[in-house]
Design a protein around this nucleic acid. Structure first.
Length: 100
DNA sequence: GTGATGACGGAAA
DNA sequence: CTTTCCGCCATCA
């Protein structure tokens, strides 16, 4: 029984198409740490590997990197090229705060 | 009820 | 460019 906030995070992560990534701040506005906490205990139908940090660095290191490269995510050194792979919150099914 | 922790973010040095 | 520190909000002990 996921909380409303938890569902919101998972919903956005699933809305990220293959070959693209999103940031923790984008899936959990105001509480980026919560996003990680959710993914940490939720690894079923959620492509957690497509969720990276705001600067493009990976949270799970080599493991996550392998999955992203396999999906065709462009890398810039040891970080993801957000300029090409980052999805704007507007492209997600639900936006962090579309009220404003 | 209080206190500590975290798959983070952003600013400062 | 890298490293360090503080702050954020939700969850856990």
């Amino acid at each position: 029984m996921a909380s409303e906030r938890e569902r919101s995070v998972l919903a956005r992560v699933r809305s990220v198409p293959e070959g693209y990534v999103t940031t923790y701040g984008a899936v959990s506005p105001g509480s980026p740490r919560f996003a990680g906490a959710v993914l940490a205990h939720t690894a079923e139908d959620v492509p957690w590997q497509r969720v990276v940090r705001a600067d493009g660095s990976l949270a799970q290191g080599a493991r996550q990197r392998a999955l992203l490269e396999a999906e065709g995510v462009p890398f810039r050194g040891s970080r993801v090229d957000l300029g090409e792979a980052l999805i704007p919150p507007e492209a997600l099914t639900s936006r962090p705060n579309d009220d404003k």
